[in-house]
Amino acid sequence: MKKFSGKVLFLDRSDINTDEIIPARYLTEITKEALKPFLLEDLTLPSFNNGDFKSKAVIVTRANFGCGSSREHAPWALEVNGINVVIAESFARIFRQNMYNCGMLAIELSKEKIDYLLDYYSDKDTSIEIDIDNDKIIVTSIEKTEAIDFQVSEFDKTLVKEGGWVGYADKNY
């Protein structure tokens, strides 16, 4: 299983698309590692500076994250930068499935919970640890630690534990 804990990068916008996560001009790379420097290169957001993703492990963002292109380069660009968890109000279908297919976590929380995380924590140095067995997101800042419940389907959890869809499918189909 991958590592699901570390510092949080807050991206306070809905509809962040896969072109913003990894622009098409880098789709000519044929290794995942080569995508590393280009993560979020085309994202323009007042609260985000290019390079802010460095040393982060979790993204917290708003609705419809990962919309647009089917490119799995988007989760790979996150993965090679050590980001294995995205927590959002909702995801585009293909991006979400790509995350789980790679054994990564795309966790959906209610709008209220996302609002709370962004409002309370986004200006603080924040860490998140995912307790996948107990379906809890442990959020820690200098002031407090709290647990937030989440739900993922049995299928998604199996993919995370098996390390992705290829291994599972090879065994079962």
């Binding site: 089917s70 490119r71 799995e72 989760p75 293909i94 991006f95 499935q97 790509n98 297919n101 790679c102 299928f155 992705g164 869809w165 290829v166 499918a169 090879d170 189909y173």
Partner: peptide
């Protein structure tokens, strides 16, 4: 349906998709 590379990989190998 559009899918990512891992679903494609399993499609190529096994002819199935979830």
């Amino acid at each position: 349906a559009g899918i990512g590379t891992t679903d494609l990989e399993v499609g190529i190998l096994k002819g199935v998709c979830a």
